[in-house]
Amino acid sequence: MEVTQIIIQVLNSISYGLLLFLLAAGLSLIFGLMGVINLAYGSFFMLGVYLSLAVIEQTGSFILALLGAATAVSLVSMVMEVCFIRKIYNRELDQVLLTFGFAYIFMDIVRWCWGGTPQSLPKPVMLQGSISILGAIFPVYRLAVIFVGILLALVLWLIVEKTRMGVIIKAGVDDKEMVSGLGINIRLYFTLIFALGAFLAAVGGVLGGPITGAYLGLDSEILVLALAVVVIGGLGTLKGAFLGSVLIGFMETFGNAFFPNYAMMTIYITMVAVLVLKPNGLLGKDERP
């Protein structure tokens, strides 16, 4: 076991963990605040990857692709929330059926438009290549993911802690009735939260795309990962989602590197271990919102 190996694996863990945070933060908001089970969440991620692929092919710009794909996906999600989700708040099983239906629809639309051949999302030119860190070679792009992940976590933290919207979000997690009792249009906020969640999923998709690639089935893989992160961290807490992401990042990286035989199980073993010790996740509250 060499030092360089350890350095690389630690960097791997952090970049993978922050990638997980990018893709789970939105689900954490939707799940935690609205209490809506959104099984189409992975589809938002997948749509993000494919749409950005289309924009890059047209314009060649990664930034345009990021903004364009994320905006388009959040618009789609707003329509979905206003027309459908809104009708079934508090009906969890119908949410499962509805969002699963949407997952089917999005998956087939992607297959229709892009076909079944796996594609890859090119990295931005300035982030290609690798650099040497104390003799260990590490891809530049992953360092960028670490940077953006921390930045986004900070921005989200500021929104939740320092803005009016954040105050309402936190109050909403604790007590929905109280918030609407104060005369705040909670419906509007719900739509905004849902769209913000979708926006984050699409951003995660575009940033993660150069690592994951674009293929059918990406949606369900991401969904399971995101659900795992959110549940391990505890519902409705961004801090929890952050902790959960980093924990899974380390567990998966070191688990796969040193116990590759158990690679299929590491994430589930982690989940069981956490939930056995803390039945409501690391930072979850005792009662559901």
């Binding site: 795992a228 549940v231 519902l235 589930y268 056995v276």
Partner: peptide, 28 residues
């Protein structure tokens, strides 16, 4: 004995986790 300690979405996910562990076992 284990899964029923959790409820709601946590129950959903811990059952999923056990299910996938046994899936992996059958695979390996």
């Amino acid at each position: 004995l284990v899964v029923l300690r959790s409820s709601g979405p946590y129950f959903l996910m811990i059952t999923l986790a056990f299910g996938q562990m046994i899936f992996a076992l059958a695979w390996k």
